Amino acid sequence: MTNFLHYQAIDWNRIEDIVDKMTWEKLTSQFWLDTRIPVSNDLKDWRSLSEIEKDVVNKAFVGLTLLDTLQSEEGANVMRADVRSPHEEAVLNNILFMESVHAKSYSTIFISLNDSAEIDEIFEWGNNHPSLQYKAKVIEDIYLLPSGKETTEQIINGLKKKIASVFLESFLFYSGFYTPLFYLGNNKLANVAEIIKLIIRDESVHGTYLGYKFQLGYQALTDQEQAEVKEWAYNLVFDLYMNESQYTQEVYGAIGWVEEVDCFVKYNANKALQNLGFESIFEGATAQDINPIVYNGLSTETTNHDFFSQVGSGYLMGRVEAMEDEDYQYL
């Protein structure tokens, strides 16, 4: 139906792209809230950590909070100008809301494990840390590019926004995700990790969906335009990686995890490129190169169950696996 007087109602019975419907159903089946997970049950584990370990956890989480705040305020919202259908916009609405849930979840972790003075201190660190602020500013500057469907420049800017979002969702978050996955593999902070695994489950869908939408637009460009966009994407991932390498050193240097986290970051940078349909570029960063304890944690099957309130990452929320190498299909 194309005729309407003033405003057109969305009709989910007429789908232009089945991926929109599939993604909507997957995301809504995964719905969760941080308040249903008993993070305070991890206090015993938290108190057993050294001060250096606590500092690493707090810095990792405030970094994640900052990036998810950016995503919840601007991420999916800035892509409305070039949506292909109202169904795609509905999916973006879902993504936008869940990014707010993610950002709030870190505050739940903070208040469950730290006192108010400690929380103020770590947020002060994150809000003024050069490497952390740099990656947020790079992504935000791209989000502010004028986009739409009227000119080639606007169309390409819209694709750049998708590239930036995929890099954030599938790459930049993962230096922070390393920490809770490591402790989960060592039987500590299980409820904190439950939240992180739920977030990873969402981000896996967000990254692949936006990567798919990018590929649709990318394939419509001329060969020269494609080459320019691809070069821009590789320049961006290199710039973000160099900054991420510095950030990793600053967060994980005191605990001696820099090399392992760097490998994990490279692995997920390659995954982000694959989401866009591009070739991997970082060598020595395969699944076999990652700390197996952390890699096992990428599986998003349930770790906890609460059969009375019926919550848990695998109970009545749908089971969604993290993306594997063979799951990536290029248009």
Rank of each mutant, 00 (worst) to 15 (best):
T108Q: 12
D202P: 05
D55A: 08
Q30N: 15
D11V: 01
K54E: 12
Q310K: 13
E244H: 11
T23L: 08
N243V: 15
K162F: 02
S105A: 15
E231M: 13
T35S: 12
I290L: 09
Y241E: 06
D306W: 02
S107M: 14
Y295I: 07
D34L: 03
L33E: 12
N191E: 06
I111D: 13
F110R: 09
E118I: 01
S105Y: 10
E324R: 14
M317L: 13
G211N: 12
I156D: 06
K137V: 00
G297Q: 04
L70G: 01
G312Y: 12
E99P: 00
R14H: 15
K59L: 03
I10S: 11
Q8G: 03
S116M: 08
W257P: 02
S50A: 09
E25A: 05
V192N: 03
K54A: 10
G185C: 05
K104H: 14
D289P: 01
D17M: 08
T2F: 09
L168I: 03
D20V: 08
G126A: 13
S204C: 09
I139N: 02
Y247Q: 09
F123C: 00
I139S: 07
E283S: 14
S40Q: 10
V166N: 07
A227P: 08
F31R: 11
L144T: 12
Y178S: 06
G253F: 11
D42V: 08
E203I: 04
D82K: 04
E324H: 13
K137I: 00
S116C: 01
L92A: 09
W32H: 07
E260I: 00
I199G: 08
Q329R: 09
G63T: 06
A76L: 01
F110G: 00
V311M: 08
I95V: 13
W46S: 06
N291R: 06
G126Q: 04
Y143K: 05
V91T: 07
T302P: 08
I109A: 01
T248D: 07
W125S: 06
K161T: 13
G185V: 05
I163C: 10
T208A: 13
F123E: 06
V311E: 10
E121W: 00
A81V: 12
T152S: 15
S170G: 10
S112A: 14
K59Q: 11
I95M: 11
Y252G: 02
A227Q: 12
I142S: 03
F214W: 09
Q8L: 11
C263V: 15
N186I: 02
E74I: 04
S280Y: 11
V205A: 14
T23V: 12
L67Y: 01
I195T: 07
A136W: 00
K54V: 11
S50W: 11
Q30S: 15
V294G: 00
D325G: 09
W24Y: 15
A220N: 12
I95L: 11
K59T: 03
Y134C: 01
F282Y: 15
D289L: 02
D42Y: 08
D82V: 05
